[in-house]
Design a protein around this nucleic acid. Structure first.
Lengths: 252, 252
DNA sequence: ATCATAGTCGTCTGCCTGACGATAATCAGT
DNA sequence: ACTGATTATCGTCAGGCAGACGACTATGAT
């Protein structure tokens, strides 16, 4: 059954971004307010059309830069400041997910350190960091919630998938450091795990674990007291990407 | 910057399939021979265009059925015979990956038990099971290899990603049972792990591990001697999808 | 000085794992 | 029937890691 090259339906292809960060001990995602129908006035994930001649990851990096000013952390460049982690998440192509036309969206997951207030093309009122719990509560992916409107399109599903990916991936990779500034303490890293997993971790066992995992952390020699209490050693992310042994998420 | 709904470039969207199985102690993938240009006569992964009104997973399931006769194992239906596991793998959209036009391919990963000879629209000479090592060797993803032609398009990359996904996913999920018939022995399951990981596992420790992991295996009561030697208990896959504790891949 | 806070080092116990010995139940030859 | 090959299954033992938790250190706030 050879195909007819002229007989394929045309699709629009977009990238949508799940941009996660940790703010005030809770996991937050970037949301933008839609300016036109459909779902006008509702919150949605940032995203846009893939352009001609543009790769999917290029399109995602461009959208990320437009929305946050972040540039993507190149895995080849080891010590690059203010770089975000970006990876493909999944692709959503339900017919009818966009009422206007057939749109296939390649969702990407970005992890960023705590940032200043977001900007959406210069308009701050149209972009915000929102706790993922609040964004998902009213969509059937969380617990009871306040009456805020759910996310547009199937973005609640995409966000839930992105959060789940982040939750599982910090177990066996050093990705949690993507939520931290270039230099950070063990306690700050622990608060990342606690926020993403919504659990409390024993500071002593956590310290032993991360400092004992080869390649995870390298001390910079400096110390800081920005968290209060006794000064803590500063570290930066080591070269290891896969953690062995992995961090273990406590059972619920 | 509101977008112009009429100003998006049209794409063709396809699904490509990485169908894996274990035959004669080695991991094999389904390959089809291309009947027309580009890459005429070369081996490629099965796939095809997504139709109008068709979901991505529907399109993947349809292509899988067309190529292999397998129907997809519905996670809701617990004990369905001859069902394959199917999941989305990743999406490949490099401009220029198809010389004819802009094509975005949503690759899927399918795991199937050992099957009779493949059929490609009834033409057996145009489809075969090939050891993944041979398929990847000549593409720079393996070691030294014979002078066979590499896979068409970027299918070697897709296959490599699919194999890597399968290798890591059988660690922490019960997915290895998707390579087995509905009833199988511990030894048969061990040979699946050995083939996928290309390692030798201790039969005694493996037996202790899998029979001790809750929800992984449920005995059927029957036994078989189809592997020779002492009769072995038959099991079927238990309800658990996530293994706790996970299977550990030996370090290299 | 005292307290609260956060960081760091140890100890102990239980569980899991890898290495490996031993036994059991079948089949193929002789 | 005996022997050997093959596979399955049970047991033992030592080492390592994880969770629970005590103890001490170094800072800032009152």
């Amino acid at each position: 059954m050879p195909y007819d090259p002229s007989a394929f339906p045309p699709f629009a292809v977009t990238v949508d971004l799940v941009v996660l960060t940790v703010r005030r001990h809770s996991l937050c995602a970037l949301a933008v307010r839609r300016g036109e129908p459909p779902f006008q006035g509702r919150w949605a994930l940032p995203g846009g059309f893939v352009r001609e001649g543009e790769d999917l990851s290029q399109a995602a990096a461009r959208e990320l830069a437009e929305e946050t000013g972040l540039c993507v952390h190149d895995p080849a460049a080891p010590t690059q400041d203010n770089g975000a982690h970006l990876e493909q998440l999944a692709t959503y192509g339900d017919p009818g997910r966009d009422p206007r036309m057939r749109v296939v969206s390649v969702a990407h997951l970005a992890l960023a350190p705590d940032l200043p207030a977001p900007r959406a093309g210069g308009d701050a009122s149209n972009a915000r960091w929102a706790a993922v719990g609040e964004l998902l509560e009213q969509s059937g992916y969380g617990h009871a919630g306040q009456p805020a409107a759910p996310l547009a399109f199937d973005h609640a599903q995409i966000l839930a998938d992105g959060v789940e990916r982040a939750r599982s991936k910090i177990e066996y990779s050093s990705l949690a450091t993507a939520f931290c500034p270039s230099e950070f303490t063990v306690g700050e890293l622990r608060r990342v795990y606690e926020a993403v997993w919504s659990v409390a971790l024993d500071p002593r066992n956590f310290h032993r674990k991360v400092t004992g995992t080869p390649g995870f952390l390298v001390p910079t020699g400096g110390t800081t007291t920005r968290q209060g209490g006794r000064p803590a050693q500063l570290f930066r992310a080591g070269g290891a990407t896969l953690l062995n042994p992995p961090m273990l998420r406590p059972e619920v």
